[in-house]
Design a binder for these strands. Structure first.
Length: 773
RNA sequence: GGGCUUGUGGUCUAGUUUGGUUAUGAUGCUGCCUCGACAUGGCAGUGAUCGAGUGUUCAAAUCACUCCAGGCCCA
């Protein structure tokens, strides 16, 4: 009989037609029911070309989660969104157009950002679609849409009213030339020659001289402690004693701290507000009172006494002079110092306390730990990232940014008394250009307002994704039936940001956890295990890879090569070689397509054996799927299909399937079993490789989509797995002997079937053309 | 500098939780083979002192400690 499948290999080009069919038949459309399974899909950020191949792999696996749930009988809600707020697009736009954000009119700059995002987004959507994501593309959302930003603002207003948001002045990176705070990403470091001044401090009790080296002597007035390494024997008897600071004559304590390097300078370090980021950390850790020595104008403040009004560099020259005149300098070394500069103005940044908005989090940490305990993590080890982070949180969350492309903070200030006005929720507010909705100030009656120019930290937007997709505050029934969502799939590098902030915000807004499970994926590295980056030139563009090898190949590679939660290496060669398995599956199907699909037959012992192996496979796969660990089913299916089903069983059953020397009932047993095994394999594999399984399923077994089927159930058949190795050893033995005697495989040979394989004797004799006893 | 994590044939990977024959599978390489699904195939072979060291034990890839190298996040 002619095979129904004519082509000799799986052609990835067939994927396009299948995609189109799925779209036309709307098989993944979501209708609200009582059995909803909501995925809090990560909205990817279009930060530049090409998209990260690790991210593409990540989304392929998220789709496997959706398909697994769907084939387990759940009503899957799989929203698709794009995250579009934040710094990267601003930097991308500045570079692309050769402009500067603060020198460009705000509205104009926002438009350029939006256009850039549209371009990058189009490519990401194309990749997600061609990967076969069964998500809701028709209603995909953007975090910079009016709707989403309105929602972010609403949740902020809610929290403002609850009193968990406050303004506070804390140290920030500050570029006094362009008058703005600087994100860490905008700092560049340069080696700059500077003077290391060895100054004489005096112990209060014994009047002993202690030498302390610093590159920032102008900050003596802001010195609050001196640290020494606890292992530094020179100072061990001075720990806890007081020192007199030169010139200012204030008193500070000597504190032990591991960050003091014994070999640098004199080993004793003065801690000032703020010489560098280490000072900030120490002030926080040791709970010191900060002194503001440098103001927003970039000049020394009144605490600097006689140096007030000077720029730090001028003050430094002057203070060194004064120290030398007072004989308070031991020596001065010329050194090269790694200095943080503003990328923009190329001037050294200062760390200056500035007023920003904060969201309270310190008082919620115990609650967060409890929720963290309740959420099931896949793999469980990554729960530790969250727990460790909760242990180390020491300040509240600063949520305001002095940037343009983000959700605006919806606040106006009275020009007269500075009283803040926070509007009613329900509208999208842009205070930098919109008129204040209030007629007059509630406090003083003044009618003039100034809009807030700052935007939110981008995590303020992303952290409400589960609330946005479940229509919190906008569709009560929908929300009730979809929240808390089922699962949060995400990458491991943003557990401390996205996962944590989502937990925090959702708890504060709803009192509940946002999801029951969290699924954490590792990071995609290059083939040598190094981080991929455009500058290193080792980034792999996923689009051509998917176009060449096909989405199923890419997906099967992702499933079978990536151990759950661990970092993984990406190599084009590896991806391409995965295709061999799909080819094997195709040809097995092609062979079976020459036999009719029948409902029953008389099962031989070999049929019972393969069905018992199949039963074991089902149980292994379902166990893997229940943990959303696709490595387990993909490798188990490959092993079974290739090395047991194709290599052993098909060869054993082939002669019987052709019916030569067997009764019709015996023949039908083989044909029935062949189809039963293949159709089960296809269903088991459908969540991982949706295209080829759909094509084969519809060609061989049904008009309907395989993705509307359920995963097969085990039948608890008698375990015959001890036969598997015996059969394959016997078959190898026959094949080897024929080879040694230079016989063709169809030639007859005299070998006895061993006693233990007696039950398979008839099949084995026909298979090998044995002249047997 | 701190926290978490990884290190198994040329390459990738299973096994480490709970120590126990000859360390799993894929890929690569070599040789042979067109036998009625498949040369994108079949068969056979090659190849690992399990990152290094020390310790515990009758027994260590597996447990403990130290070191080296990579990754992620935070300074």
């Amino acid at each position: 009989m002619e095979p129904k499948i004519a082509q000799k290999a799986w052609d990835p080009k067939l994927e396009n037609a299948i995609l189109k069919k799925w779209e036309e038949e709307k098989i993944y459309d979501f209708q609200l029911s009582d059995n909803n399974y909501t995925i809090d899909t990560p909205p990817p950020y279009p930060s530049g070309r090409p998209w990260h191949i690790g991210a593409a792999s990540h989304y392929a696996q998220i789709d496997m989660i959706a398909r697994t749930a769907r084939m387990s009988g759940k009503n899957v809600y799989f929203p698709i969104g794009i995250d579009r707020n934040g710094l990267p697009v601003e930097l991308y736009t500045e570079k692309k157009h050769g402009i500067r954000m603060r020198e460009t009119e705000r509205g104009e700059f926002l438009e350029l950002c939006e256009n850039a995002l549209d371009d990058l987004e189009a490519e990401m959507i194309q990749i997600m679609k061609s990967l076969g994501l069964s998500g809701d593309f028709k209603n995909y959302y953007r975090t910079d849409s009016e709707d989403y930003r309105k929602f972010t603002q609403e949740t902020f207003i809610d929290l403002w009213k609850k009193g968990v948001i406050y303004l506070a002045t804390r140290p920030n990176n500050y570029d006094w030339v362009s008058g703005t705070t600087i994100a860490d990403a905008e700092i560049v470091y340069e080696e700059i020659p500077t003077k290391l001044v060895y100054m004489k401090f005096i112990t209060k009790e014994t009047k002993k001289e202690i030498i302390i080296a610093s590159t920032r002597p102008e900050l003596l007035c802001a010195c609050k402690t001196v640290i020494v390494n606890p292992n530094d024997e020179r100072y061990s008897d001075l720990i806890g004693k007081e020192l007199i600071v030169p010139l200012t004559n204030s008193e500070v304590k000597i504190t032990p701290h591991h960050s003091a390097k014994i070999e640098f300078g004199s080993g004793a370090v003065m801690v000032c507000s703020y010489g560098d980021q280490n000072d900030v950390a120490l002030f926080r850790e040791l709970q010191l009172d900060e002194v503001i020595a440098i103001g927003l104008d970039g000049r020394m403040t009144e605490v600097a006494g006689g140096y007030q009004g000077l720029k730090p560099k001028q003050a430094r020259t002057k203070i060194i002079e004064d120290l030398e005149n007072a004989n308070l300098v031991e020596k001065i070394e010329d050194i090269s110092h790694r200095t943080p500069l503003s990328e923009r103005s190329k001037t050294p940044i200062e760390i200056v306390p500035m007023e920003e908005y904060y969201l309270k989090q310190k008082d919620s940490l115990e609650k967060m730990k409890k929720l963290g305990e309740e959420i099931e993590f896949h793999p469980n080890m990554h729960k530790q990232i969250l727990m460790n982070w909760l242990e180390s949180i020491s300040i509240d969350w600063p949520i305001s940014r002095r940037r343009f492309y983000g959700t605006e903070i919806p606040i106006w200030y009275c020009n007269e008394c500075s009283e803040p006005f926070v509007p009613e929720p329900g509208k999208y507010y842009r205070p930098w250009k919109d008129k204040c909705p209030a007629e007059k100030c509630e406090k003083c009656g003044n009618m003039e307002f100034t809009g807030e120019e700052r935007t939110f930290d981008t995590w303020m937007d992303s952290s409400v994704s589960p609330l946005f997709v479940t229509k919190f505050n906008r569709d009560e029934e929908f929300f009730k039936k979809t929240y808390p969502t089922a699962i949060r799939p995400q990458a491991k590098d943003i557990v401390r940001t996205w996962l944590y902030y989502t937990l925090l915000r959702c708890e504060k807004l709803t009192g509940e956890k946002p999801w029951s499970e969290a699924w954490i994926m590792g990071y995609g590295l290059d083939e040598k295990g190094m981080k991929m980056s455009k500058s290193k030139g080792n980034a792999i563009d996923p689009l051509p890879v998917i176009e060449k090898s096909g989405a199923d190949t890419f997906r099967f590679w992702s499933a079978s090569e990536i151990n759950q939660g661990y970092d993984f290496r990406c190599s084009e060669q590896k991806i391409e070689s995965t295709r061999k398995f799909l080819s094997k599956l195709w040809n097995v199907s092609r062979f079976l397509s020459s036999f009719p699909v029948i409902k029953s037959g008389q099962l031989s012992e070999s049929d019972k054996w393969i069905l018992s192996e199949l039963d074991k496979l089902i149980s292994v796969c379902k166990e893997g799927y229940s943990k959303y660990n696709f490595f387990i089913p993909s490798t188990a299916i490959r092993e079974f299909t290739w090395n047991i089903f194709a290599a052993q069983y098909i060869e054993i059953a082939k002669a019987r399937a052709y019916g030569i020397g067997f009764t019709d009932e015996e023949r039908d047993g083989a044909i029935f079993t062949l189809h039963k095994v293949l159709s089960t394999i296809l269903k088991l594999l459908a969540p991982i490789t949706p295209f080829i399984t759909e094509h084969l399923w519809q060609t061989l077994y049904s008009q309907d989509s395989i993705h509307e089927e359920n995963l097969p159930d085990i039948e608890n058949l008698n375990d015959m797995s001890e036969m598997t190795q015996l059969l394959s050893e016997f078959n190898s033995k026959v094949w080897n002997e024929k080879k040694q005697k230079e016989l063709s495989l169809k030639d007859s040979i005299k070998i006895d079937v061993p006693e233990i394989l007696n039950q398979f004797k008839k099949d084995l004799i026909a298979m090998h053309n044995l002249e047997s006893n």
